[in-house]
């Protein structure tokens, strides 16, 4: 089975990459964008029966830095 961990910067944490992308989008004429935030998606192939809690534990211990990042776990 698959698990997907989506890691995003916490609200309020400055995201210079998002800002640069926002600037480039504006340069392309996409004036409707108010803000861009960059995160990452980590896909794991895990043993059947793996729980959301176990994947959340992986996220807390390594996949996300909870000082600056939030994460969301999805199992599929």
């Amino acid at each position: 089975m698959k698990a997907r961990v989506t890691v995003s910067l916490k609200p309020g944490v400055l995201d210079p990459q998002g800002r640069a992308i926002h600037h480039a989008l504006e340069g392309l004429g996409f004036g409707q964008v108010a803000e861009v935030r960059v995160g990452k998606v980590i896909e794991l192939e895990v043993a059947d029966g793996t729980t959301e809690d176990q994947v959340a534990d992986m996220a807390r211990k390594l996949l996300a830095n909870t000082v600056i990042e939030n994460f969301r776990v999805e199992l599929a």
Binding site: L14, P16, Q17, V67, I68
Partner: peptide
């Protein structure tokens, strides 16, 4: 050291990129 928890905070991408 920050990643290991021995020091607080985090070191992020330079603001000017």
């Amino acid at each position: 050291l920050t990643e290991s928890g021995l020091l607080p905070g985090a070191l992020m991408r330079n603001a000017g990129l």
